[in-house]
Design a protein around this nucleic acid. Structure first.
Lengths: 153, 153
DNA sequence: ATAAAATCCTACTAATTCGATAGGAATTAT
DNA sequence: ATAATTCCTATCGAATTAGTAGGATTTTAT
């Protein structure tokens, strides 16, 4: 399961992609209140997203956070890796975080590894495609469908 | 990432599927040594697999563990759920372990949920197909391919 | 200049989970 | 009987997670 850090990060990013589309910075406390995230905790999360190059900030009185990249460029895979580490379920099939399985006899012919390698590929592909843009699009599509349902009743 | 419990469980199950194909029980210590799993830790794991109906055991002098189901019937999804809980990355898209996301405003139109719902479906499908039988088959196929490579050199 | 308001940074903490061990009870073949 | 095995409960140390505290730093507005 995703850690709360990652969940909060995704929600904050989506919020910033929506609210801060004019380029004006949004204050931490606004994001925290709107998305129901503990203020101080969010502070640390946004800072880490900034260090990772996804966000930028302005300090001081009119300060706040805003996207450093476009919503098309920021994807869930990168956010997950940042906070939760590898997406792979086994270290021996991880890409950035590769590590040999201690107990493994022959990595090349391991059937378990073969299975989890496939799972990783599929998952990473889907999460790379899941950009902030894609998420917002999906949600808008779902809202339209809900409206239809309601008006039919 | 998988917990060590789950990794050990999968390795032990594959071992039992291979070694215990005659139906004779295999001792814990044999599995532990062969798969490099701490003996006492493995004891608890096998017991849990028994309680879940995947293994059975014989007590006493000639005792040990053996598969309760066929290798085609035991799959990785069930093993993972047993030790690590839900396969879903968000509680709101889990099947057996469903829980609402506290901070979520509208589950029905949540773009994040939509993405992770797709990821879950794909992952579960792959892991359900990953039976002990499938794993052993894959490993044998890989061994053949390795032989070819070696003999070519 | 100064005060106000924001981000930035370090350190700490309580609770939970994880991996593993210890010790003995129950069971069974010889 | 006894030897060898599974079964069961309790415990432990280390790591991780979620969150808090407090103040340093930076910037704007007056």
């Amino acid at each position: 399961m995703l850690s709360k850090r990652t969940k909060y990060a995704i929600n904050a990013l989506v919020y910033l992609a929506r609210e801060g589309s004019d380029g004006e910075p949004v204050q931490i406390s606004r994001v925290a209140e709107s998305e129901h995230i503990p203020r101080k905790f969010l502070e640390a999360i946004l800072l880490e997203l900034k260090h990772a190059g996804m966000l930028n900030s302005r300090k001081g009185k009119t300060g706040g956070y805003y996207l450093q990249k476009t919503p098309e460029e920021i994807n869930i895979a990168d956010v997950m890796r940042l906070f939760d580490g590898p997406i792979a379920l086994l270290p021996c099939v991880a890409y950035k975080y590769y590590e040999r399985c201690e107990e493994c006899k022959d990595e090349e012919t391991c059937g378990i590894r073969s299975v989890f390698s496939d799972v990783r590929s599929q998952t990473v592909q889907m999460l790379k495609n899941a950009t902030l843009f894609e998420i917002i699009q999906r949600s808008e599509k779902l809202k339209k469908e809900t409206k239809k349902k309601v008006s039919k009743k």
